[in-house]
Every structure is written in structure tokens, then in C-alpha cells.
């Protein structure tokens, strides 16, 4: 008789998981490694160098990329900030206002940016801005980013809110806090971990976007992804790999941060 299979320990699943990780990480690691390659022909290893990083900051293309990076940063900070405020207010309404008219609709609206395919959002935004006569530029990018950042900011914030018992706000009001004070002095500090990870998520999502930005950006306005995309059309040069590696680093730092914030929040809750 065949040995009984332990369902928790399917043979081979570890192997597939490792393959999965290799597939996910190999391209990134290889690009990072090659960004240190001291050779103009990319595919031959010519020893380690930081030249390409120097090139990113001082090379002929550096002003273009620096401007693009600055644009990306401004947009990500503003869009994440705006989306976080909007999502926080929405989360308070959805978890602390009982039933109200249009609640289901509101929930659908918050999640609408997740349901509409990116390319459709991009087309719709372009059409809309041109129809109402907005000049495409940083501002249109900012608006479009704020919209699709809202659900990403909303998710961790509302998850956090749901785990906060409303007994703390009741205690605050019992101790003569006005509803506003109960919010600012008690609920808001308790929500903070959720708000932080929500804004970090929104920030990364905004930095990540290419397609929608590409549609609504004005002529000559570039963010880092659109600038990289433009450059890649000309071929993958080492300075692109250096920029990519830098962005990779930034993303990983932010995700790790967001993860840690979430964990600290959870521990405090206990």
C-alpha cells in the first residue's frame, strides 16, 4: 500500500515555491548586478564599477532624469497625501457612521479605480481632460494619481479602523471630550499605523504608474517611468539599469517600512 501523503507536506511544493522566488527575483538581481558592470557592451562582464551611477547624477542625460525624478516625487507625495486624507475620511464614515444612504454605492465608488482596467482609466482621463479643456501637465497627472491611490490608501486604514473598538471614543466622550476631540486625541492616534501604511502604499503605487501618466502628461512633462520608457525604446543602456536599481532600492525600503509599521501597530494592539 502506498504511504499516506501528508497534505501539509506535498512533495515538490517547496521546489515550486523556490522556482517561484527565482523567477520573481532573478531579473531584478541580474539588472542590479549588471548596473555595476564596467563595460559598454552590456552583456560582457568587465569588472565592477560605480560609473553608471555617477553617470546618472552627472551624465548628459542626468538633468532630464533628475527633473523626471523630481516630478515623480512631487506627484507621489501630493497624490499620496491627498488620497490618504480622502481615504481616512471615507474609512471613518464607512466604519463609524452606522448605516447611511448610499453606503453600498460609496463602497463601490471607493473600489471603482481597482475595477476599471488601467488602460480604460487612462483613456477616460485623457478624453475628460481634453473635453473640459484642462491643459495636460503635472496637475492632470496629480489628479489622476490621487484617484487611483484612494483605494490603496483606504484598504489598510479601514482594516485598522475595524480592529479599533469604539469603546475608546466612548470613554473619551464620557470624559468630556467633544466628538472632535474624541477624534483628534483618541481615534486618530490609534489609527496612525493604518494611515501610515496606507500613505506608503499610495506613495509606491503613484511612483509605479506608467500607463495613466503616459496618457495625461503634457508634452515635455515626464515622470521617472515615462522617461525610462522613452529611453528603453532606444535600447537598454547601463545608466537605465542604474536608475532601475536605485528605484528598486527605494521600493524595497518603502515596502519594508510599511511592513514594519504594520507589525508595530499589531503588537501595540495586543
Amino acid at each position: 500500500m502506498a504511504a499516506k501523503i501528508d497534505l501539509r507536506r506535498f512533495p515538490g511544493f517547496l521546489g515550486i515555491t523556490l522556482i517561484c522566488l527565482v523567477v520573481l527575483y532573478a531579473p531584478l538581481i541580474i539588472v542590479a548586478v549588471y548596473s555595476f558592470n564596467d563595460s559598454t557592451s552590456i552583456t560582457n562582464w568587465g569588472g565592477a564599477t560605480l560609473n553608471w551611477y555617477v553617470d546618472v547624477f552627472t551624465g548628459p542625460e542626468s538633468p532630464k532624469f533628475q527633473q523626471a525624478a523630481l516630478n515623480s516625487l512631487i506627484i507621489a507625495v501630493c497624490a499620496a497625501g491627498a488620497a490618504t486624507c480622502i481615504a481616512t475620511a471615507a474609512a471613518v464614515a464607512m466604519t463609524r457612521a452606522g448605516r447611511f444612504r448610499g453606503k453600498t454605492l460609496s463602497f463601490a465608488l471607493i473600489n471603482l479605480p481597482l475595477m476599471v482596467p488601467e488602460v480604460v482609466t487612462a483613456v477616460a482621463s485623457l478624453v475628460f481632460f481634453s473635453a473640459i479643456g484642462f491643459t495636460n501637465g503635472l496637475f492632470t497627472i496629480l489628479i489622476a494619481h490621487t484617484v487611483f491611490c484612494i483605494p490603496f490608501a483606504y484598504l489598510p486604514i479601514s482594516a485598522r479602523m475595524q480592529s479599533i473598538s469604539d469603546v475608546y471614543e466612548q470613554a473619551a466622550m464620557d470624559l468630556y471630550a467633544t466628538p472632535r476631540e474624541a477624534f483628534t486625541k483618541v481615534l486618530l492616534p490609534l489609527m496612525m499605523p493604518g494611515i501610515l501604511s496606507g500613505s506608503l502604499l499610495a506613495f509606491i503605487i503613484s511612483l509605479d504608474d506608467f500607463l495613466i501618466t503616459n496618457f495625461v502628461k503634457g508634452a515635455g512633462v515626464e515622470t521617472l517611468p515615462t522617461a525610462i520608457f522613452g529611453a528603453v525604446k532606444q535600447g537598454i543602456k547601463p545608466n537605465i539599469m542604474a536608475i532601475s536599481t536605485l528605484m528598486l532600492g527605494v521600493s524595497i525600503v518603502f515596502v519594508t517600512l510599511s511592513w514594519l509599521v504594520g507589525r508595530v501597530g499589531q503588537n501595540k494592539q495586543k
Binding site: A87, A97, L112
Partner: peptide, 26 residues
């Protein structure tokens, strides 16, 4: 509970406006 019961509309307004105007309308 419904601590912010009367405030639902005010709190949801930014979401309605931003997503309504800049995604639904488009």
C-alpha cells in the same frame, strides 16, 4: 456604533467628488 452618524455625507463627500468627477464622469 454610529458616533459620526450625522457626518457620513460630509466625510464621504471628498471621495464622491474626486472619484465621481475624475473617474466616473470620465
Amino acid at each position: 456604533s454610529d458616533i459620526y452618524k450625522g457626518d457620513a455625507a460630509r466625510l464621504m463627500m471628498p471621495t464622491w467628488l474626486i472619484i465621481g468627477i475624475f473617474l466616473l464622469a470620465p
